[in-house]
């Protein structure tokens, strides 16, 4: 084969690679895709942590749901906690607020909530089954689920007030 042909092929492949690399700067390789957006929320039935009884997604028919996955050892979760308290007071009548604690102990969570306040119900997911069903990739993560129990969006970082307002507007429509 002609040497120049080989060099040309190498050049073309190299050019494609260069373009791809240039386009890749700024992409976060650690970001995990989330495919459940627009899909029905997975059913769950979990023990309550702050009171007796279990919570069933099916029992919340017709109500928008805000799900927050968190853990006590996670610093950003503690930062986010006041925002959720504020949001639960503001939107508590329009949507159901549910916190889900996983990869944590019941004891530590109760202590945390007693110290920092708890204005919405908390579930305990000892085996992380619910977290796996929801495709959780870290803590904290907040899911916004509409009346028909379709996941409208997920926010995978500590949320602030204005972001929360924007996201919840989508499920209250």
């Amino acid at each position: 084969m002609n040497r120049n042909v080989i060099l040309a092929i190498v050049g073309v492949l190299g050019a494609a690679f260069f373009i791809a690399v240039m386009l890749s700067f700024g992409n976060d390789p650690h970001a995990v895709p989330f495919m459940l957006e627009g899909k029905p929320a997975p059913a769950f039935s979990m023990k309550r942590l702050d009171a007796d009884g279990t919570v069933n997604l099916a029992d919340l028919k017709g109500k928008p749901v805000v799900l927050n996955f968190w853990a006590t050892w996670c610093g950003p979760c503690a930062q986010e906690h006041p925002v959720l308290e504020w949001a639960a007071k503001k939107y508590g009548n329009d949507a159901v607020f549910i916190g889900v604690v996983f990869e944590d102990t019941e004891e530590a969570t109760k202590k945390f909530l007693a110290q920092r306040g708890s204005s919405f119900q908390q579930l305990y997911d000892p085996q992380s089954t619910m977290a796996v069903d929801y495709g959780v990739t870290g803590v904290p993560e907040t899911y916004f689920i509409d009346r028909n129990h379709v996941i409208v969006s997920k926010y995978a970082a500590p949320i602030n007030m204005s972001t929360f307002d924007k996201h919840i507007a989508q499920i209250l429509k």
């Binding site: 650690h30 995990v32 996983f102 990869e103 085996q127 992380s128 089954t129 977290a131 796996v132 069903d133 495709g135 990739t137 870290g138």
Partner: peptide, 23 residues
């Protein structure tokens, strides 16, 4: 495994990987 960079859920020692392997 989504919480541990690039490892499989069978290999990673992270609790998240264990939960997924349970699934």
């Amino acid at each position: 495994c989504p919480m541990c960079q690039g490892q499989s859920i069978a290999d990673s020692p992270a609790p998240a990987a264990r939960a997924q392997l349970d699934k």
